[in-house]
Design a protein around this nucleic acid. Structure first.
Lengths: 113, 113
DNA sequence: TTGACCCATGTCGATATAGGAATATATAGT
DNA sequence: ACTATATATTCCTATATCGACATGGGTCAA
């Protein structure tokens, strides 16, 4: 068996950094594909394919306007992610004042892998 | 190019549902591998490989105790996820009172794909 | 030392990607 | 009808999985 499909899940869909970039770009508001292409300097087919994945998991929605398609984020679709993360947020926030955690993170950033 | 490595990122690491299950199981506290194997009824090599991925991205840490290895979660490693999600949480929570979002989610759950 | 136990690692197969290039589809304008 | 524009889709290849199975490597006990 291979890795789960990118369209099987919100988790798998946002695993790709470029797809998160597309979402972050759409966070400013509804935009046509061309704006994303020039904004993120990715190829147009790439963007279309990423948008397709995001659409299939419900992260974005689009409406046609002339020959353009305006995409927008569907924030509610991020809820599974939020809900999975919720139980851990307590621990995450409780430790914000602990120095060693901060140092560990710096160390992890310094020596990747 | 293929999909990014599962060990390249926290996002890629938690894309796999089984790995999230392992993390959720460890959320109750430090546990040896065998407890995860029997708790989640996965094969032992599977669990070891998943733990390896989680270790390489810093999501878990382990210490040896006799012939057992005790794994525990490193909550700070979830911070990139939390930080990426943060800007969207506003929209997520603002809409909790909007009925159509709730209905959309129900509909999405009812008819997968 | 032998064996039981706990865990990690290697191999193999099927599968699904991401990216580039080319092409298809649809709409608008002349 | 024809052209230009905006977007989607198809074909291709290299790559990296996940799962099953087998095996390697410490560690404890007798």
């Amino acid at each position: 068996m291979a890795r789960s499909s990118t369209t099987s899940d919100v988790f798998n869909a946002i695993a790709e950094a470029q797809r998160r970039d597309v979402l972050d770009h759409l966070a400013t508001g509804e935009q046509p594909v061309g704006a994303i292409v020039s904004g993120l300097s990715m190829s147009q087919p790439q963007v279309s394919k990423h948008l397709r994945v995001l659409r299939e998991v419900g992260l974005v929605r689009c409406r046609a306007e002339g020959r353009r398609r305006l995409y927008h984020i569907e924030p509610a679709s991020l809820r599974p992610l939020q809900e999975w993360l919720a139980p851990y947020e307590r621990a995450l926030n409780d430790r914000l004042d602990r120095l060693d955690d901060y140092l560990n993170e710096l160390q992890r950033q310094g020596e990747p892998q």
